[in-house]
Design a protein around this nucleic acid. Structure first.
Lengths: 145, 145
DNA sequence: CCTTGACTTGAAGTTGACTTCAACTTTTAG
DNA sequence: CTAAAAGTTGAAGTCAACTTCAAGTCAAGG
């Protein structure tokens, strides 16, 4: 596949693909003249990268955890620590989701005045500052409006 | 509470607190001389902000959805849309978590060579590019190393 | 009174993740 | 053959979310 094809299939901009390649997140398999050629597997890889980002990993973290040639440094403790982090994030997100849903349905004029909304979200937020459950970092802005 | 106290309790830097105030995410209740005074409620607010960020909301989005004086623009459709987004994010994150956990336990030398890891994550990634399930935006880096 | 330390400000700097640009090379259609 | 379309590069620009800096204010202690 050439770069445009990958871009079209995944929605990831060509510039981003080149950027990812430079960063070592994906690899092109040879050139067709000047042009990069990608194996179709790169589509899955990109999905995984997007997932990692959604989970709050930086591109560097994604690389070390999902690298296709990550022989040396696959730190298993780090992996399960990250999994734990993601799990607590999931719990909080569920509460946020519930909170938002309630807010959407709730007849109170302002969320600030709706005690059950407050309770839901405060419950979600509890412990947010205690043990540092590291939050997300950066994530992309897919699509071209 | 003065700014240092809030910072200590929440781990949010004083500079960040001033930044948030400028952006309209939090409010100080008067001054003690020059110095801002915050009501203790700001601690909960900050937790909610952190949560919103973890859920992939930008600070501007957080403000419009959780504003303490959000009288006018509480768009209920937007709220449940966001909740839906968060729910699909949760599903994917669960898969990522499982994937990481498996990777941590799996004896394969490289994750790239472990078919069940690949399967788990590919399942999580499926549909990542189809309907645009908008991913996260930006998030903070708490603490001062 | 005067220094010290915690706060104030606006402006400028940083970081991660991209995007855009200028200049150039290939491929492709006419 | 030639011109447009699509790819290439490195360098520079953008954006959100902060942080750092210079310069100033104020309360308290010696």
């Amino acid at each position: 596949m050439d770069i445009a094809e990958v871009a079209k299939q995944t929605g990831v901009a060509a510039s981003t693909l080149r950027y990812y390649e430079k960063k070592g997140l994906i690899r092109s398999v040879g050139r067709d003249g000047l042009r990069r050629r990608f194996s179709p597997g790169v589509v899955d890889q990109l999905a995984l990268i997007a997932l990692g980002q959604a989970a709050g990993l930086s591109l560097d973290e994604v690389r070390t955890m999902l690298s296709p040639d990550g022989e040396p440094n696959i730190d298993r403790e780090l992996l399960s620590a990250k999994a734990d982090e993601i799990d607590t994030l999931i719990k909080r997100l569920r509460a946020v989701s519930n909170g938002l849903r309630h807010a959407a349905a709730c007849p109170a004029p302002s969320h600030a005045e709706c005690p059950s909304f407050q309770k839901l979200l405060k419950a979600a937020a509890l412990g947010m500052f205690d043990a540092h459950a590291t939050p997300a970092r950066n994530a992309p802005r897919r699509s071209r409006p």
